[in-house]
Design a binder for these strands. Structure first.
Lengths: 179, 179
DNA sequence: CAATCCTTTCGATCTGACCTGAAAGGATCG
DNA sequence: CGATCCTTTCAGGTCAGATCGAAAGGATTG
């Protein structure tokens, strides 16, 4: 295959890995993800090991995590025992998955925590007076704002992802009009 | 001050720190940010050290980074030599800052990389024929989709943050109409 | 300008996340 | 069933990045 094509792929994979690292995703996991994203057909564990120079164990772990996230899927080719892995290649679908998972794992817990924090000071809000009361009220207000914001963002993402792929042109135009 | 109020603050700070860690922000930095977010008035370095149990150097570094990001600001109280730090407490403003910075540092580089990757295979697209050509075309298509997606998201964020607080209801409706 | 008070820097240390590779575990084949 | 082929696990090793704290730097004061 063309040398430039190979180089181009490698560059993309490397950068995607770096980006992942900045967003709290292990570099290798992001690299595997990128590799499968740009691969026209499913790859097996050994392919991944060879192309990215990582150990068998590491590859196995990360492939599994990616399957867990729903970003890649196991594929069985007829007449072959090996497992193969195929990347989701619809970008919108991919990001919907990522968003949903991260929301579930990281945003929702923080919303719950905020509610819990608020319930902890509920009595104080009734009981206290004067400056102390004021301080707790302000604290409570800030927490509410934060929770509201997070909930609004949730809704927004739902809407956008639903609009998604199909209406991309319309969506872009509509956005341009709103600016 | 009320014990539950203190506990509530601590819980929030701790969780915010954990969340930060999941998103590629050092736990301590996120904790300091949370502390200043829930503090009704500016704090000095020693306050932060005492409340979070971190060293002077660590506190100094992280405070500086937060100032760099624009998430907190230095405040000088009259009649006091010390520097104090105040957190941004408008949640929308806060997230706009975070989004803008991360986009500049992490999303824009990846868009540039994608364009670079595409220019690397431009010749192949003219030169190659048959299956090989097909493969490079598909690769190119996926990259384009990815870049398009990222650009749409950029625009979306611009619009949302501009609409912001005030017109959010309208925005959500406008988007809902597109579904 | 010496003293005081803060802030920042920086080399040493530490920590936790990531990775490796050998060994165990399972499935499928003849 | 034994052999073969893959996958997964896990006990350690490695390393980048986070943290510490002493020392240097800088500003303000009397």
């Amino acid at each position: 295959m063309s040398a430039l094509y190979e180089q181009s792929r490698q560059l993309f994979i490397q950068r995607w890995g770096e980006m992942g690292a900045n967003w709290g995703i292990s570099r290798t996991m992001a690299e595997i993800h990128a590799l499968l994203f740009v691969s026209p057909e499913p790859l097996c564990t050994d392919d991944v090991m060879a192309q990215l120079q990582v150990s068998r164990g590491n590859t196995s772990m990360n492939l599994r995590q990616l399957v867990n996230w729903g970003l890649i899927s196991r594929v069985h080719l007829p007449g072959d025992r090996k497992e193969y892995f195929a990347g989701e290649n619809d970008v919108w679908q991919m990001f919907e998955t990522i968003t949903r998972e991260r929301r579930r794992r990281e945003v929702e817990p923080i919303i719950e925590t905020i509610e819990r924090c608020q319930s902890m000071v509920r009595d104080d809000l009734k009981r206290l007076r004067g400056a102390e009361r004021h301080q707790v009220q302000e604290y409570n207000r800030r927490l509410t704002e934060m929770a509201d914001f997070l909930n609004v963002m949730n809704t927004l993402f739902n809407v956008v992802m639903k609009a998604g792929h199909k209406n991309l042109a319309r969506l872009t135009k509509a956005l341009a009009r709103l600016m």
